[in-house]
Each structure stands twice: as C-alpha cells, then as structure tokens.
Amino acid sequence: MTISLKKATYIEHATLIEAIFSDLKQYNINVAGCHNPIEATTEFFHAKPASVSNENKHSFIAFYNDIPIGIIDIINHFPFDKTSYIGLFAILEQYQGKHVGKRIFTTLEVLCKKTLHTHTLRLGVKKSNPVNGFWEKMGFTLISVKEDAYVMEKDII
C-alpha cells in the first residue's frame, strides 16, 4: 500500500478536487450540508483567514496506490508561528475504517514537520461531524470547545 500527498493547484486539479467533493457524501451531510462541489472546490483552494498570506495556504491530494482518495487543506503558521492548522482532512468513504486515513495522516505529519517546520498541529472538528475518535487515536487532545466545534491539538516536535 503506497500513500502519497501531492500539492494541488486550482489550475491543474480543480476538476479532480470537485469530483472528490462530489463523492464525499457523508462529509457533505455532516459538515457542509449539501455543499455544491464547485463552490467547495473554490473554497478549498482560496478560503483562509485574512491575516494569512497565500504562501502559507497549502492544498494536497492524498493518493492510495496512485488513486486520488482524499483532500487536505493546511494553513501554516496559524494561529501561531510553528503551528499548522488542518482546515480539511477528508478521505473518500470507501477508504474509511481501513487504516488508510491513519497512514495518510502520518504522511501529512512528516510533511508538516520536515517541510513546513511545524511544531504543533491544530484543527477544529464541527460538532456535527463525529470524527473526534479518529483524531484522538492520532494523538490529538481537546484544548477548547467553541459554540459549533471542538478545537484539538497535537505537538509533533
């Protein structure tokens, strides 16, 4: 089983990302609420806090044996220096529960540590999306509860 992450760009990969969003049916129900795949793709590539520069926004496609099965969005140095915020980590449903997500996350963790020089990973999990267990298995701990989300972190230094 080969896992790889490829940097995604809007010009080269928008159609592929749109197809992945179309297949993320449970994600669309739990998180986005019947999200339009075209709008979701545009948001995936361009949404970021105003204080974040474009060079700190990273979009990836996750491959399993050269098959695109997921998408990942990272904002580096957010909300603090040496912290990378995982804005989206979505794996196609047919690959969930098979330890593929764990292998993709491990690959992402190494990339963040070695390439982005990250010391801490942070993410928010919408309360409507029951994936806290996965993130706890990956070593994340709950640091705060917001109105609609759980904020989790993991130190990777």
Rank of each mutant, 00 (worst) to 15 (best):
I61P: 00
I61Q: 03
I61E: 00
I61Y: 09
A62Q: 04
A62M: 11
F63V: 01
F63D: 02
Y64G: 02
N65Q: 12
N65P: 12
N65W: 06
D66N: 15
D66E: 13
D66M: 00
D66Y: 01
I67W: 10
I67M: 14
I67L: 03
I67C: 10
I67S: 09
I69S: 11
I69W: 14
G70K: 12
I71H: 00
I71G: 02
I71P: 02
I71F: 01
I72V: 11
I72Y: 01
I72H: 02
I72R: 04
D73G: 11
D73Y: 04
I74R: 01
I74Q: 05
I75P: 00
I75G: 02
N76R: 09
N76L: 11
N76H: 12
F78C: 01
F78L: 11
F78V: 07
P79T: 08
P79S: 12
F80H: 06
F80Q: 06
D81E: 15
D81P: 03
D81K: 13
K82Y: 12
K82I: 06
K82Q: 12
K82N: 14
T83W: 11
T83N: 13
S84I: 08
S84N: 11
Y85V: 08
Y85H: 14
Y85A: 04
I86K: 04
I86F: 09
I86H: 13
G87E: 06
G87P: 05
L88N: 00
L88S: 02
F89P: 00
A90G: 03
A90E: 02
A90H: 00
A90P: 00
L92G: 01
E93A: 13
E93I: 09
Q94T: 10
Y95F: 14
Y95K: 06
Q96E: 09
Q96G: 10
Q96F: 08
G97T: 09
K98E: 13
K98V: 02
K98L: 11
H99R: 15
H99S: 14
H99M: 03
V100E: 11
V100Q: 07
G101M: 08
G101H: 09
G101K: 03
G101T: 10
K102P: 00
R103W: 05
R103H: 08
R103I: 02
R103V: 04
I104C: 10
T106A: 13
L108T: 03
L108K: 11
L108D: 08
E109A: 07
V110K: 14
V110T: 14
V110Y: 12
V110D: 10
L111V: 13
L111Q: 05
C112S: 10
K114G: 00
K114H: 15
K114T: 15
K114R: 14
T115V: 12
L116N: 00
H117I: 03
T118H: 06
T118Q: 08
H119W: 03
H119I: 01
T120K: 13
T120Y: 14
T120E: 07
L121V: 02
R122V: 04
R122M: 10
L123Q: 02
L123D: 07
L123R: 04
G124P: 06
V125M: 03
V125Y: 00
V125I: 14
K126M: 14
K126N: 10
K127F: 02
K127I: 06
K127T: 08
K127E: 11
S128M: 05
S128E: 09
N129I: 09
N129Y: 07
P130Q: 10
P130L: 02
V131A: 11
V131S: 08
V131G: 09
